[in-house]
Amino acid sequence: MEKELLFITVIGEDKKGIVAKISTLLYECDINIEDINQRIMDRYFVMTMLVDMKESKYPLEKVREEIEKIGDALQLKIQIQHENIFKMMHRV
């Protein structure tokens, strides 16, 4: 079965519990984490997670809503975007 890959991007100040909170949510939704990376860029803490939503129990809109709640609670900017947008923009 083909994967449905999306990137979750977290931008902001590094703090405890970011990975824990997001990965708990993803586990509850039945979304698999394929890869995690983090870096300090332009003074920001940046973490990206590549996730597979193929078996997700919830539609993307609902997952986005929940992720945004975590972002608000931790005062971080969190984005979830299908991987195609990155392929289009960064690969010729």
Partner: peptide, 17 residues
Amino acid sequence: MSISVEEVFETASMILN
């Protein structure tokens, strides 16, 4: 084809900032 953190960050900050 892997996308780097830098590339993901670039796209996300174009939209967010």
